[in-house]
Amino acid sequence: MKYHIDTIPVWDAYHQGGECPLCNLENRLEKSYVDSFLGASVMEPDTRIEVNKTGFCPFHFKLLYDAQNRLGLALMTHTHLKEFMEKFEQRCKALLKASKDRSTSVLSSIIKGKKEVNQLTAEFEGWLTMQHGQCIICNRMSNTMNRYAYTILYLWDTDKEFKKALESSKGFCLKHLVLTTKIARETLPAHKQTLWLTDIIPLQIKSFHNLEHELSQFINKFDYRNQDKPLGSAKDSLPRTIQKLTGKFMD
């Protein structure tokens, strides 16, 4: 597996700090893609064809809608809807035709026909589920985040200064811990995978313990006896804990 090395954005993400550098990168990347899909780039033929074919997931549709460029979003949604409708009607007609063709009064044929119709219906449900989950922004973000995760592993393996930055960080959120572990498994030899886990797991454990302590402080602050005690870093422990567990910023 080959990835382009994007070292500058990764260094910037580590300098930014926080619970997870890959969350920092993903947040910036998501905002950039939302802006680009509501800008001039969406009128490029290749991009428009891909939007028409794939569309957006519910979450990214909401982000695009909240961006307030309703005309741009309406134009994209209209052409995507037209392409979806054509495929949808074709599948519906095929399903209805198959159901009618298998209608019979012979008992054995009824049982066989019911199984075939059930299979066709299940395939139709699977296709609908796939359509609902498709998203051009998710696809592009996934590719880029894989590249960033590879870059982190590359820098960890080749740059002593970066390794120091990683060791002084708070590790990753769970989602991006999975991602870096996956990329390490796919790209590193076994002994380096072991070294990576040896470096990253203690960071994760320490980070979780710190969050648990800060979250406990935050909860105790609601006791009237602790009203005058300063919260310090525990003030934002709840959104940081949620981010650590889910990979999403609580804006």
Rank of each mutant, 00 (worst) to 15 (best):
P202R: 01
L197D: 05
E30G: 12
I183H: 04
K53P: 07
I205N: 08
G18E: 04
T7P: 00
F37E: 01
L197K: 11
I8K: 13
T246S: 13
G72H: 02
I205H: 07
T246Y: 03
F172Y: 09
C173F: 00
H176P: 00
P58H: 02
I110A: 08
L107N: 11
L29M: 12
E30I: 10
I49R: 14
E125A: 15
N139E: 13
Y148P: 02
C57H: 02
G113P: 02
R28T: 06
W11V: 15
I201K: 12
K87N: 15
K160I: 10
H78C: 09
E125S: 15
K2G: 15
N143I: 11
F162N: 05
K163Y: 00
R185M: 12
P9A: 06
Y148R: 07
Y148Q: 05
F59A: 15
L174Y: 10
E161N: 13
Q90M: 12
S99R: 05
S105K: 14
K175I: 08
N226Q: 08
L63C: 04
L203T: 01
K163H: 08
N210C: 02
D236N: 14
D6A: 14
K62M: 09
E161W: 00
I219W: 04
M76P: 00
K163N: 13
S216E: 13
A98C: 01
I110S: 07
C135S: 09
K2P: 12
K170N: 15
N226M: 05
Q227H: 08
A98W: 00
D101S: 09
D101F: 00
E161D: 14
T180H: 02
N139Y: 06
K164W: 01
K100F: 10
C92G: 10
G133L: 08
F218G: 09
